[in-house]
Design a protein around this nucleic acid. Structure first.
Length: 972
DNA sequence: GCAAGGACGTA
DNA sequence: GTACGTCCTTGCA
């Protein structure tokens, strides 16, 4: 018995590049590959009949792009460009051709052709059959058998070469330098840039073959990697063992695909003129038709061209009528090969559907009558959801007033309801409102029931803003969906604003606010705009938001981001909205006094600096300072920044001060004081809201790579704490009269998560026993008892612990500790020896990010690193360190998010009256009635400590420390 | 008027 | 060595 397997997909791709293009005469349909394919099938059966006629034949095709390999490696074949346009219509035609030749055409969802062929070949061999695989794909070379029972046959015609070329063990050896059974081990090491199999960076085929021949196989090699003499090669293998193992999985063909048609089903059938000629005639292949007619002793004229496939035929599948229709037909064919199933397919088709409807500004309506408004409300009830966007007088949701509201219930639609556009005229004149606007109260009364209706979904882009604005007008908008948060859950912070999302997903450039209202000093606020242009802008926002919702929502299910979005993103937005609305009291008097004090001391330092420098200059200018220190005074040891300017950072100045340069110390002190003034004591009072008398920060939920929040205007996540002067600023953050501030912070949460994620027994035990973790680390590393440990020893261990979390490098650690690179390297080595799991964790993350392009937190948040395989080594190292840090920082961020989401209902359930005001990454600040702090702190701690449950049961204890006081400094 | 770079505050 | 936001100066438009 002899089984012939034809690599159909492989043939098409290779033939496309090897063969001259050919178009069907009557309509220009590209058919070069189809013709080559028919010739190949014909030739194969002919030539093989002379030699060893196959008794069983099948052509195997790839079904879709998505296979199990994508599960272990999402970038697998990511570099493969999508099929050229001319190729797309030829895919289905080669299936037709196969059937026309009465040959089994096999493809299976979720499997590559290679796996199916491997399975058939394996089964045939076990029956003692001979196997020929018509392919020259190097990935199939692993199937070649030494005894010649399985061989490849290259069938692509090449000038100057025989038409059929056999690939047996010798040819495989020429290609890979090893016997066929070791091909996968070589491929695991050298990788494959075409299929984007990583391999071990810096190892090519030759080195790989040498290593495998020496050690026998990959696992032996990796196990004995330390024995390799060449240091660079040894290091590469040690560092990238995990990548190599994953690469091997990727290149190893599956030999146990659950076949739908067994071997016997592939028994060769005689060619049937009634199948063959209608196809060949539809393709207009005259030569091969003639030759087959002779062979089969049939008259092609007895057959009509296949009506579905012929030029001008009546099905999409075959030939479109005119070349003008070609692109449409191709698009339809391409749509048929959309990867994946179910949710992914739906997401792709929704995306296509939304994009197909062009943005039409003429379709937008401005609402000026109560009747129209009530019709829209009915429309929203009928729909069940509505995209909504408020236009206001500013960007601060705690100050801005509503100028207009825009609604969209379906893509392409946009209703703008102007309510606050002002008449032109100077501010003093107070010109009143423009005509043609409904009274704001009437509009809000009409909308309030819909906006608060729990059965109507309100879709927004950054809904938190609109929630806060509406709250001030007595409307509690709920429930919400948010396109910004969906995008964040799916793709991270890379596409943030509505404009970027619209460009990326809808290929539409939205009107910018600058285009509408001008930029810079002359920029108008929304209420100063004419209604008509404002309506276009506003309606577009609502329409685009609705479109994005249709594009992004299905992607959540398709890309396994629903849980992340529903549990960590969507419910947090209203919580943050309430925190922002509450604000915190900042004592203006305290800041004033501090400002005066700091200013006086800064002025003294300034005078001192001029004295020491022998001239006056701008102390705030690093440029001038660098020139004075290193050019004028000629101090040694200066370094330049990447732009060629002198480096004058605090570490440099600190160094100089120690070397006896008093000016350096003066500058350091001056910088600290002016920093405190400029950023805090002078700036904070300007953020006090006149309406509430409190400071309302704004949290960004969707701008940090790792899942943390960020805080701005003002940033209340970087209020000083490390220096005495800095801490004085914290004393200005006070509880309202009759209230008390509570600060609750996670103790060492990132180190605890490292212990959990990397599964480090020694660390976990230390946390379990409540030990001083840095002292314990020092004791392990330096063999000194914890008791009476010198503080310097503990300090070093602490720096190393933090270094680990940050993706340690000898360079960084040596800088941090002010020690030599070599010494820092020795510390790291010792650390890895004492806690071997840490190195495994780091290697695993490094490998993961190169393979998948992302790493994940314990709650499944994906953190993307598009540059993971950058050609720039320093960029690559940066990604490696970030990918080590991100799961730790991100998991901690997810945990505190869960705590925040649960906090309010839980406190309410327990009857605890405490308001959550601020979040500072691992700390939550509350304001509670004086006297209730003990019960409040206990409830808060319970929620925070249990926040990972039940989704994740941590294997380390989580500890929260809480304190209460009248100001933040004392509470912390 | 705006963007980039440097510096520095936090976890 | 990770993750941010803000202030100030500088250089260019």
């Amino acid at each position: 018995m002899h089984l012939l397997l034809v690599d159909g997909s492989g043939y098409i791709f290779r033939a496309f590049h090897a063969l001259p293009p050919l178009n069907r005469k009557s309509d220009g349909l590209p058919v070069g590959c189809v013709q080559g394919f028919c010739n190949m099938l014909f030739k194969l059966t002919q030539d093989m009949d002379i030699d060893e006629p196959p008794t069983h034949v099948a052509v195997i095709f790839d079904h879709s792009a998505k296979t199990f390999r994508d599960e272990i490696y999402s970038d697998y074949k990511a570099h493969r460009p999508s099929a050229p346009e001319e190729l797309v219509p030829q895919f289905p035609l080669t299936r037709h051709a196969t059937r026309a030749f009465s040959i089994a055409s096999i493809e299976m969802e979720g499997w590559e052709a290679d796996d199916i062929m491997a399975t058939y070949a394996c089964q045939a061999k076990s029956r003692g059959w001979k196997v020929t695989i018509a392919s020259s794909d190097k990935d199939l070379m692993q199937l070649v058998e030494m005894d010649g029972s399985i061989r490849l046959l290259d069938t692509i015609p090449r000038p100057g070469q025989p038409p059929l070329r056999w690939i047996g063990p010798d040819e495989v050896f020429t290609k890979f330098g090893v016997t066929p059974d070791k091909v996968i081990d070589v491929q695991a090491l050298c990788g494959d840039s075409v299929d984007n199999v990583p391999g071990v960076p810096g190892i090519g085929v030759k080195t790989a073959a040498e290593l495998i021949n020496q050690y026998g196989d990959l696992e032996t090699l990796l196990a004995r990697a330390e024995e390799i003499k060449q240091p660079a090669r040894r290091q590469k293998l040690v560092d990238n063992a995990e990548l190599a193992r994953i690469s091997k999985q990727l290149v190893t063909l599956e030999q146990a695909v659950p076949l739908e048609i067994d071997l016997d089903g592939l028994a060769r059938q005689p060619m049937a003129p009634s199948a063959l000629f209608p196809f060949l005639k539809a393709m207009e292949f005259a030569t091969i038709t003639k030759r087959l007619a002779g062979l089969l002793d049939a008259n092609p004229d007895d057959f009509e061209p296949d009506p579905d496939l012929k030029a001008g035929g009546n099905k999409d599948m075959g030939a479109p009528k005119k070349s003008a229709d070609l692109s449409v037909a191709k698009a339809k064919l391409a749509a048929n090969v959309v990867p994946g199933t179910g949710p992914a397919r739906f997401a792709a088709s929704e995306h296509a559907r939304v994009k197909a409807v062009p943005i039409d500004y003429d379709a937008y309506r401005t609402v000026t009558t109560a009747e129209d408004l009530s019709a829209i409300v009915s429309r929203i009830y009928a729909r069940g959801h509505v995209a909504i966007d408020t236009e206001t007088t500013g960007l601060d949701p705690q100050q801005a007033d509503i100028v207009g509201i825009c609604l969209s219930t379906e893509i392409g639609e946009g209703f703008y309801i102007p309510v606050g556009h002002a008449k032109a005229g100077d501010l003093l004149a107070g010109g009143g409102l423009l005509e043609g606007q409904l009274p704001i109260r009437d509009v809000l009364d009409a909308l309030k029931p819909v906006l608060e209706d729990p059965s109507i979904l309100k879709i927004g882009q950054n809904s938190k803003y609109d929630m806060e604005v509406f709250e001030r007008y007595g409307i509690a908008m709920a429930p919400i969906d948010d396109t910004m948060l969906m995008s964040y859950a799916l793709d991270g912070p890379q596409y943030n604003g509505l404009d970027v999302l619209a460009k990326h997903w809808l290929d539409h450039k939205t009107i910018t606010f600058g285009e509408l209202a001008g930029t810079g000093k002359g920029q108008k606020t929304f209420d100063q705009l004419e209604i008509a242009p404002a309506a276009r802008y506003a309606a577009e926002d609502a329409d685009v938001t609705m479109r994005l919702w249709h594009v992004l929502k299905p992607r959540l299910a398709a890309e396994n981001a629903t849980a992340l979005y529903e549990t960590l993103e969507r419910p947090l937005a209203p919580v943050l909205a309430r925190m922002e609305a509450r604000g915190i009291t900042v004592d203006r008097q305290i800041l004033n006094r501090l400002s005066g004090d700091f200013a006086q001391r800064a002025a003294a330092l300034e005078a001192e600096a001029y004295e020491l420098a022998g001239q006056s200059f701008n102390l705030g200018s690093p440029k001038q300072l660098g020139e004075i220190l290193f050019d004028k005074m000629g101090l040694e040891g200066g370094t330049k920044t990447k732009t060629g300017a002198w480096s004058t950072g605090a570490d440099v100045l600190e160094d100089l001060a120690l070397k006896g340069v008093p000016l350096a110390r003066t500058i350091v002190d001056w910088r600290q004081l002016t920093k405190l003034m400029g950023t805090y004591t002078d700036a904070l009072p300007t953020y006090i809201n006149p309406r509430t008398g409190r400071v309302h920060t704004s949290y960004s939920q969707a701008s940090v790579l790792t899942g943390r929040l960020s805080s701005n205007e003002p940033n209340l996540q970087n209020i000083p704490v490390r220096t005495g002067d800095g801490r004085k600023i914290r004393t200005a953050f006070v509880a309202a009269p009759g209230k008390i501030l509570i600060s609750a912070d996670y103790s060492q949460i990132e180190l605890r998560l490292l212990a959990h994620i990397a599964d480090i027994g020694a660390l976990k035990d230390a946390f379990e026993e409540g030990l001083d973790i840095h002292a314990m680390t020092a004791s392990e590393m330096f063999n000194v008892p914890v008791k009476d440990m010198p503080s310097e020893v503990r300090r070093r261990a602490k720096a190393i612990n933090f270094g680990i979390i940050y993706g340690i490098s000898a360079f960084g650690l040596s800088n941090q500790l002010g020690i030599a690179r070599g010494e820092a390297g020795d510390y790291i080595k010792t650390y890895f020896e004492r806690f071997p799991g840490i190195k495994d964790y780091m290697d695993a993350q490094r490998a993961r990010v190169k393979i998948d392009g992302h790493v994940t937190t314990i709650f499944g948040r994906k953190i993307q690193f598009p540059n993971a395989n950058s050609g720039n080594p320093s960029e690559r190292s940066f990604v490696e360190r970030a990918s080590i840090n991100a799961p730790i920082q991100g998991s901690a961020a997810d945990i505190i998010r869960r705590a925040m989401i649960r906090m309010e209902p839980e406190l309410k359930r327990l009857g605890v009256e405490a308001d959550m005001l601020l979040q500072v990454h691992d700390e939550l600040i509350f304001e509670a009635p004086e006297g209730t702090e003990e019960t409040a702190m206990s409830a808060i701690k319970t929620v925070m400590e249990g926040a990972s449950e039940p989704a994740v049961r941590l294997t380390v204890p989580i500890q929260v420390d809480a304190h209460a006081a009248k100001n933040w400094d004392e509470a912390h």
